[in-house]
Design a protein around this nucleic acid. Sequence first.
DNA 1: CTGAAAGCGCTTACAG
DNA 2: CTGAAAGCGCTTACAG
Lengths: 327, 327
Amino acid sequence: MAHISDVARLAGVSSATVSRVINGTAKVSEEKARRVRKAIAETGFNPNEIARSLYKKSSRMIGYIVPSILNIFLSEIGRAIEDEAFRNGYKVILCNTDQNPEKEAAYIKMLSSMNADGIIITANNEHLDEELESCRLPIVVLDKSAGARYSASVQSDSYEGGKIATEHLIRCGCRKIVLMRGPQQYSSSQQRFLGYVDACNEHGIQPLFVESGFDYREGRDGARELFRRFPDAEGILAVSDMAALSLYRLLHEQGRSVPDDVMIVGYDGVELSELMTPALTTVAQPIEAIGRRAVGLILEQVEKGKIEQREIIFPVTLKLRETTKQI
Amino acid sequence: MAHISDVARLAGVSSATVSRVINGTAKVSEEKARRVRKAIAETGFNPNEIARSLYKKSSRMIGYIVPSILNIFLSEIGRAIEDEAFRNGYKVILCNTDQNPEKEAAYIKMLSSMNADGIIITANNEHLDEELESCRLPIVVLDKSAGARYSASVQSDSYEGGKIATEHLIRCGCRKIVLMRGPQQYSSSQQRFLGYVDACNEHGIQPLFVESGFDYREGRDGARELFRRFPDAEGILAVSDMAALSLYRLLHEQGRSVPDDVMIVGYDGVELSELMTPALTTVAQPIEAIGRRAVGLILEQVEKGKIEQREIIFPVTLKLRETTKQI
DNA sequence: CTGAAAGCGCTTACAG
DNA sequence: CTGAAAGCGCTTACAG
């Protein structure tokens, strides 16, 4: 690997000058600049990013901390984050935690020791708070409201999501509507629950719910409990699009059909929701926008050099598909 | 942030000594070691990994380069990679390329400029070869055989996969069996195709196939063409589990049922395959093992300091589920 | 506009 | 066993 000094020697200038033409950080005579560019091309010089990071105290890295990348919603968000980061010259470190507090803490520590520029995190972990508090990196949370310890939060309107999904089922003629309620440590889950309850109350319907996690397995457990407790549910609000898959399966086993016997509304609007059979009616979050905005907020903080509290809430939209039928 | 010099001062030793107790790289008197540990605890010292990387020319990072993390198979592999990397103190950089040659090249360049320790890559991109060739990092490919330019390859037995899937359909009574053939730049796709053809020939069956990419959308296109050209297919070998979803959908639209009217065998064995309705019979790759082994090979090369060519092929297994029925 | 020099925060020969 | 010093490869005040 060629070093900056090799380029400098070849171009007959100092390393400082080479650095300046590479970064465009100061005026350099066109004559020398030309020689430098030529020397760079000849040597195939690729600046060592680590050396730069050490001096600048920034490695142009963003950590994406999630319970599991196998959660499709999170992987779609990750996709958007990666894309937005890349186009701004940033890299993303994938941090899968399995909700393991030690792994979460280790990653947070690791990221700060690497001069990362920010953290985007989803983790319903209470223990994490101290760890995050002692971390001076900009932190954007995706699953709860920004607290004293987070610099910013980017979410979609969960209250509205819970509400419109419920109202839609009511419009479809359902009276016995059961919500698969997400973990209540997440303020997003709380809000969705509230939206659901309010919609029920406004229509004189009794709110019913079971607890459930977001992923395949947890969703399956939640779905099982749902059918045990509410075998006569007419409409179901799935905790996630993925969980709806488990609903399909159990309903299929019971020989009940969707939407004729039971209607389902998913949540998230992942790509998969459209490809399921039947295609899933769902509350779509603006996944792309959430990911991009989260990165945008980090970059903003990096530029300003100070951490500002921000709270972004995007609107959600109901995608009408085949698992519900309006009368 | 406390620096190593702060710890040294507090403990009344030199930075060298602090470094030695942290890394256990040389003997230090128990007395001083104790003082150092105490000082570390008091200052909350967290060594700057970037500084270490600069000196060691290793950032303990592995790049995972894939067309798209939205491909569930690749995200499950990524999950395994992340896990194995983490337990060895390595971080993984998520590099999504969308098969964009420029993005791929940029990531490869970025990774070497960051003193990354290796690259694990899936990318059916020819243009990439020069880029990889000029990169001295250990490179493990997942989708083709190791060539002059790759240090190692980790795959599962695609030939066998294509073969056993076909034989299974034959055993199920299918005679008109269509393969959704993956991109032939991948040697894995080629092998699978060969396994299919051989099985057909051995049973006097005419090989039939359409071309298809792996993901949702490409799979849908492939599936459409398949039904256009072979409306009377009895058995279908999906290019991936995800593509099978599109098959379900089209078949559903045609009012044909699985497995009674048509049988389907998926490929990959992602978690999702088990949760689909009907549950998908599929050729499962040892995803966890592949990811772990890929990381293992990188670490091995890092330790040895030299790049050795290796070719790992894991066995595949047929998971019998609901989309096929033996007679 | 340009270069010599210091500095980013560690690690490790080297000498003792 | 231990410390002073050099070095990893850049960037940027500072002086000119």
